[in-house]
Amino acid sequence: MKLISLLFIILLRFDGTTASLVKESSDKNTVYVCGSGKGKRYHLNENCRGLKSCSAKTIKTTREQAQKEGKTLCGWED
Rank of each mutant, 00 (worst) to 15 (best):
S26C: 06
T30P: 02
G35F: 03
F8S: 01
N29V: 12
V33L: 06
T58W: 02
V31S: 07
T62V: 03
K60P: 00
S5M: 08
S55T: 08
T18D: 09
L44V: 06
Y42R: 03
S55L: 08
S20H: 05
C74S: 05
T17H: 01
E24Q: 09
L7C: 05
L44G: 02
T61A: 14
N47A: 10
G70N: 15
M1R: 12
I59G: 00
V22Q: 00
S55F: 00
T72G: 06
T18K: 10
R49I: 08
Y32M: 09
S36I: 09
S53N: 15
C34G: 15
I59T: 09
T72C: 14
R63F: 14
Q67A: 13
I4L: 09
I10T: 03
R13C: 07
D15T: 03
S53K: 07
V31T: 09
A19H: 14
A66K: 04
L3F: 02
T62S: 15
K71C: 11
V31W: 02
I9E: 06
T61K: 10
G37W: 07
M1I: 10
A56L: 09
I10S: 00
D78F: 04
V22L: 12
K38Y: 05
L7E: 14
K23N: 11
E69H: 05
L73Q: 15
Y42D: 05
T72I: 13
K40M: 04
G39H: 03
R41E: 15
I9H: 03
K2N: 10
T61S: 12
S5Q: 08
T62I: 04
L21P: 00
K23Y: 07
K57C: 07
K40E: 13
I4M: 02
E64W: 06
E77V: 12
K28N: 11
L12K: 04
Y42S: 09
V33P: 07
R63Q: 12
F8T: 13
